[in-house]
């Protein structure tokens, strides 16, 4: 009991001297003792006696690195007092209780032993959750739709339409338009619900994620029958606000004739 009380006092003194919480001082002392092959009691006793536990500072940046000023010289008649002399910090003389503590403890054994936490367990947990997430929300559902990898119910694109899809993606149309009809009230009237095997989900994917403009999954089927779809679409893409006042569609007057033809062909294939 006397031993524990003495160590507790020394720990408190060390913490007070360093201005650091006791818990942190204790942990630091255990780590230091283990690394340097000293006993925990030695470390705490040294710190309680004023020995510095902090790291070194770089001479070029620290004002504290300036050499300590010499104490003011006293008149010759006065012998220098002990207090005025810079004295090196020395650990306190061991008290009888400390000596008994050393004799009672096996050499090098710290008073308190901290359990080493499992790093492997933590990393395994993190990686396992990552793998589980990939399986559960990507791999399994992607393979649960049977024929999801194949385009179902839609004709293959012609070469011109295929090129048009490339233009569509290159111009970033998928950032403003979706091709993803959902089974919700908001999507009523947009056409057939997008199935797992839809072309918009095929690579390169055009399903989009935000509707600044309307959904285009079946846009061609919504064009009026008496309208020349190609001509209308071309005019709209070049002069959108002249066709629809206030439209958020940016003009694509900079597209080459070939690219415009391909893009128009692709959009008209979206039925």
């Amino acid at each position: 009991m006397r031993l524990a009380k003495t160590m507790s006092e020394q720990l408190a003194a060390a913490a007070a001297a360093m201005g650091t919480p006791e818990e942190l001082v204790e942990r630091a002392a255990i780590a230091r003792a283990t690394a340097q092959g000293r006993s925990y009691e030695e470390i705490i006793a040294a710190w309680a006696g004023g020995e510095s536990a902090t790291v070194a500072v770089t001479p070029e940046t620290s004002p504290a690195a300036d050499p300590p000023t010499e104490p003011e010289s006293k008149p010759e008649s006065d012998p220098p007092s002990e207090a005025a002399t810079a004295a090196p910090a020395v650990p306190p003389a061991p008290t009888p209780e400390t000596s008994v503590a050393v004799m009672e403890q096996p050499a090098g054994a710290p008073l308190l032993k901290a359990k080493r936490e499992s790093f492997a367990g933590l990393l395994t947990g993190i990686l396992a959750l990552l793998a589980a997430a990939i399986l559960l929300v990507v791999v399994i559902p992607a393979n649960s739709q049977g024929d999801a990898r194949h385009i179902v119910g839609e004709a293959a694109l012609s070469a011109l339409e295929d090129r048009g899809r490339d233009v569509y993606l290159q111009q970033g149309c998928q950032y403003c338009h979706t091709q993803n009809v959902r089974s919700v009230v908001a999507d009523v009237g947009l056409g057939a619900i997008t199935e797992p095997g839809a072309r918009s989900l095929a690579s390169p994917a055009t399903f989009g994620f935000q509707r600044i403009g309307p959904d285009l999954a079946h846009v061609a089927s919504r064009l009026p029958e008496d309208v020349d779809g190609a001509e209308y679409l071309r005019d709209f893409l070049i002069h959108p606000t002249e066709i629809v006042e206030g439209s958020a569609q940016p003009p694509y007057a900079n597209l080459s004739e070939d690219d415009m033809d391909a893009l128009v062909a692709y959009v008209l294939a979206l039925r």
Partner: peptide
């Protein structure tokens, strides 16, 4: 967690050759 998740997320999101629903799922993940 942070140093391992970033390359893993990047890998999953960019692995080529996916198609169908898998493409949408890898992107949302």
């Amino acid at each position: 967690a942070g140093v391992w998740w970033l390359p893993a997320l990047y890998f999953v999101g960019n692995v080529p050759g996916t198609t169908g629903l898998g493409t949408q799922l890898q992107s949302s993940f």
